[in-house]
């Protein structure tokens, strides 16, 4: 009997030591990778508050030396350019997300209705666009030459206003809503559109939140459509504005001159980093509040029926 006990004890010690070894490795590896993920953000924050001459002399570093807000001062001195870009991005994100979420969820709802006889045919037409597409060239020519996309606000909204992928997620979600709910309303004489608005949408709030989050992020981070279709500075989105600033020292000089501040050397490095922070700021600020919905949302479309 005591032998058995001893054997059990030794295995449990063995298990414990394995567990401890695993935990040590897990905490160290996970902790350092997580640090690695946020460290670069820390570096650019430090750089944005570092005096330009110090960066020139010693390069970027982990610690703030010779604290300076020169970069921010120049950017914010003449806020017209950057606040305009902010305003553009906010408007586009709000309008685009509202349009996209509404049409995506409505389309997903209709295409899973069992009493809609042509749903398979339509679904096939939608699906096929995920398998084959014309690519950038014909798309670009169509938009610029035939649809008048050059320097229009709608050219920043339309290209992302509908996504077949999101529609499929919506369709899978709508399937989980019991069929009896729209049925009973139909008996009461409500039209299909009214049923969708009044009954289905309130039930689909988790879906709308997820789609909204993903879509808003895509609009907020969009620079591609701005690069393709926009060349007026006052119509730039934030990301594209940043891209232009990073790519040419000339653009930085224009911003610096407009600010009216006289600086001996153009603080291009700290300006670039300050601009990066100003552009990323809102995302970092809302991130802690939204990320749990985000994680939840990642698995929402996984329900397949």
């Amino acid at each position: 009997m005591s032998e058995v006990n001893a054997a059990l004890k030794s295995t449990s010690i063995k298990i414990d030591s394995d567990r401890i070894a695993f935990n040590i490795i897990a905490y160290i590896v996970l902790g350092s990778f997580a640090l690695l993920c946020v460290l670069p953000f820390y570096i650019i924050i430090v750089a944005s508050f570092t005096n330009e001459q110090t960066i020139m002399r010693e390069g970027y570093s982990f610690f703030i030396r010779n604290f300076s807000t020169e970069g921010y001062k120049i950017i914010l001195k003449n806020p017209a350019t950057i606040s305009r870009a902010y305003l553009n991005t906010i408007c586009i994100t709000i309008i685009g997300t509202a349009i996209s979420v509404f049409f995506v969820s409505m389309c997903g709802y209709v295409l899973q209705k069992r009493d809609f006889p042509w749903r398979r045919g339509f679904m096939l037409i939608f699906y096929f666009t995920m398998l084959f597409n014309g690519g950038l060239t014909p798309y670009y020519i169509l938009c610029t030459r035939y649809l008048g996309f050059k320097n229009q606000f709608y050219s920043l909204i339309l290209p992302q206003a509908f996504s077949v992928w999101n529609m499929i997620i919506a369709k899978n979600f709508m399937r989980t809503i019991p069929e009896e709910i729209p049925e009973s309303a139909k008996i009461d004489g409500a039209g299909e559109f009214l049923i969708f608005i009044r009954l289905i949408l309130p039930l689909a709030i988790p879906l709308l939140a997820t789609l909204g989050l993903f879509t808003a992020l895509a609009y907020w981070n969009d620079w591609y459509n701005c690069m393709l279709f926009i060349d007026k500075t006052n119509m730039f989105t934030l990301q594209y504005f940043l891209q232009e600033m990073l790519n040419s020292i000339e653009n930085l000089r224009i911003v610096a001159e407009k600010s009216g501040l006289i600086v001996p050397v153009l603080p291009s490095e700290s300006m670039k980093m300050a601009m990066t922070i100003v552009v990323t700021g809102p995302i970092i600020l809302v991130y802690p509040f939204l990320q749990r919905y985000f994680i939840k949302g990642l698995t929402i479309g996984a329900v397949k029926g």
Binding site: P40, F41, I43, I44, A47, Y60, W220, N221, D222, W223, Q239, Y240, L242, Q243, L246, K272, M273, T276, V279, T280
Partner: peptide, 11 residues
């Protein structure tokens, strides 16, 4: 966005 990521990479 990749714009910001590229700025970080550059630093």
């Amino acid at each position: 966005s990749w714009v910001v990521a590229s700025s970080i990479l550059y630093s």
